[in-house]
Design a protein around this nucleic acid. Structure first.
Length: 362
DNA sequence: ATCCAGGCTG
DNA sequence: CAGCCTGGAT
């Protein structure tokens, strides 16, 4: 580990003093100022947080001033910065320091972690910047820099990923320069090893960077997207004419590509279920049809979609077969023998529906 | 218009 | 592990 990380740490600590931004919360050991800046900078860009930092420090020069302020005042000053639980926790934390710590900031990672609004990142930041405790910060920048340089593909959103990166960072942090290392790796992530299109040709780390040397810069770090499940509502028409049925082959750009299902309308919500299937109006203009609505909504789960499907059975008299065929051709649907349906690839949802039809025929 | 980043809490 | 918010990117 030392052999691998040594050039990393060395290059990083060489790079930092020449490239660091001059920010007002740097170059201080005051835990109050460091804490205040870290809470404000959580989920917040420097440019947006800077004026708030100055405003807070002006109004509350020390932790007791903040503790003695009202929550209303704190919330008012925080206005516009977002994530307002940070402001409530900020105030509560200041009061707890006043009431239970004699107004003195706790000075270790573990004790800082007990305070409101201080998690592992912020505890490590304060412990290292203010008290030189050799504990590594792991924020979004650190994930990215370590994942790329060391070629780690573990999902950074997972718990195991977080532990793995924390272990690595804590293994390589120089015990004699924890503050400088922590500042350096975050600044490197913020300025050089940026999320999109980093300028790797100019990067001082490229010789030892796994991602650069293996063309993986754009795929690291791995972050598994929290897939938000989309709900969709399919209103199918199961159109029968004698022994034939109307099917369609699903095309590109959606689920079930190349499989077969039936003509359908997609609704924006289940409430629209009253609405008649749009294209049935069309064919009703040419022919008499019998529509058998069903109350049943099939539920079909995919990785990223939850589909609710409802089927209306439509009976077309055989004298209208040629008109139906003409309409189907125009729409790109097929009119096929019901028996042939067995041979076509179909989504599970459709198979289930067809199975239910067989049962109801018996 | 929609998507995304970003630590902590309960 | 979802929810919290905003501004910037697309």
């Amino acid at each position: 580990m030392i052999l691998i990380s040594d050039p990393f740490v060395h290059t990083l600590l060489e790079w930092y003093p020449h490239n660091k931004r001059d920010l007002p919360w740097r170059n201080t050991n005051n835990p109050y100022i460091i804490w205040l800046s870290e809470i404000i900078l959580q989920q917040t860009r420097v440019a947006q947080g800077l004026p708030y930092f100055e405003k807070f420090l002006e109004n509350f020069p020390n932790v007791e001033d903040l503790a003695n302020s009202s929550e209303e005042m704190v919330m008012r000053l925080w206005q516009g910065l977002g994530y307002y639980s940070r402001a409530r926790n900020l105030h509560r934390c200041a009061q707890d320091i006043r009431d239970f710590h004699s107004g003195i900031f706790p000075d270790s990672y573990q004790s800082l972690l007990q305070l409101k609004g201080i998690g592992s990142y912020t505890a490590a930041a304060i412990a290292s910047f203010a008290f030189n405790e050799p504990v590594a910060v792991v924020d979004g920048n650190v994930f990215r820099v370590l994942a790329r340089y060391f070629g780690i593909a573990t999902d950074i959103a997972s718990n195991t990923g977080k532990k793995e990166f924390e272990a690595l960072a804590n293994a390589i942090i120089p015990k004699d320069k924890p503050a400088e290392f922590n500042q350096a790796i975050m600044e490197f992530g913020a300025l050089q090893c940026v999320p999109k299109n980093p300028n790797c040709d100019q990067c001082p780390m490229k010789a030892g960077c796994f991602a650069f040397n293996n063309d993986l810069v754009h795929s690291l770090p791995v972050k598994i997207k929290k897939l938000k499940i989309k709900e969709r509502y399919f209103r199918y028409a199961f159109i029968l004419c004698e022994n034939e049925v109307v099917v369609r082959r699903r095309g590109e750009g959606d689920i079930w590509q190349g499989l077969h299902d039936f003509p359908m309308d997609e609704l924006s919500s289940q409430n629209e279920s009253e609405r008649q299937i749009g294209f049935l109006k069309e064919i009703q203009g040419f022919m008499t049809i019998y529509v058998n609505e069903s109350e049943k909504w099939y539920k079909h789960i995919l990785t990223h979609q939850r589909i609710f499907a409802n089927f209306a059975t439509v009976i077309v008299q055989k004298e209208y077969r040629s008109i139906l065929k003409e309409w189907a051709d125009k729409k790109g649907f097929q009119l096929i023998d019901f028996e042939k349906l067995e041979d076509l690839g179909k989504p599970r949802l459709i198979v289930k529906f067809l199975d239910d039809q067989k049962l109801s025929l018996n």
